[in-house]
Design a protein around this nucleic acid. Sequence first.
DNA 1: TATTGTTATACTCTATAACTATA
DNA 2: TATAGTTATAGAGTATAACAATA
Lengths: 160, 160
Amino acid sequence: MADALKPEQLGAYFALMESVNLLHHSVEQQLQADGGISYVQFQLLARLAHSTGELTMTDLADGVVYSRSGLTHQAGLLEKAGLVTRGPCPDDQRATLVTITDAGRAVVGKVMPGHVEVARRMLFSQLSEKDVAALGKMMTRVRDHMRAQPPRSAAPRKRV
Amino acid sequence: MADALKPEQLGAYFALMESVNLLHHSVEQQLQADGGISYVQFQLLARLAHSTGELTMTDLADGVVYSRSGLTHQAGLLEKAGLVTRGPCPDDQRATLVTITDAGRAVVGKVMPGHVEVARRMLFSQLSEKDVAALGKMMTRVRDHMRAQPPRSAAPRKRV
DNA sequence: TATTGTTATACTCTATAACTATA
DNA sequence: TATAGTTATAGAGTATAACAATA
């Protein structure tokens, strides 16, 4: 039942997608250069650093990664790099508790200034305070809506 | 010389990145399901369809792909799928002219309604007309700035 | 000498399915 | 029976470097 988007909407949509693509690309480069990590890994480390320091795999996955195996893979890489450790979870024997190490926190700290620099140079230099406030409100609303949306692992049209 | 971002900026930044990630992910799924193409391929086809129908590889790459070989690869896939053809360019013997086929236009047409539907459901349902206008202005400004920024292929800190 | 594009190659990310173990 | 996580594997995307041809 969806007709075409209004030209304004279409323009906003493409500008949004392209801007974030470009930003994302620059951020990936910066993170790789300054800390040898990807944006996904940065998100995982940041999430751990901002919590009590340890989270279960499932908690860690939410919103960052779209498949269990993908997270296992990334957690394995982070562990191999010494940035996190994995151990049993006392509350639930099935779960794995991921803990950020001092080295992990150090990487987050090392990477942050450059990360902020990129965001500032590419994004915030072009936005007024009002813009930022408006953008923040909109995107928070949008994000919450998206997170709520379908069961998060929407069925990908399987046969059978 | 960059200090930490203000909390508002940080919040806006992360909400923006996560929203677009989620949106991008949904769009990829929709495009794959409805047309068997990726978002990058959609962008290339859309760009061709909205131009005269044929563009040189370099023109086609701008803003969509970050390496020559990546575009060659994608163009090869599109050609194999019968969605574009590649031929010599009369103006410049070095260049390759990429032309969208009827099948290519058909795929764009086939995929559009679902694409719009996703954008509407995930994004525009949460935005007022004013929001869209503001977002469009901001992101257009940001995109133009990003495109202008460094020489587009910023030197990736090589050794030697 | 600079630019356009391709090739070969290698690496990363992601996803599916099958599996183990706990709840 | 459902959930948490891992493994194996396969597929797609992307980038680097070396190369050929033309400007």
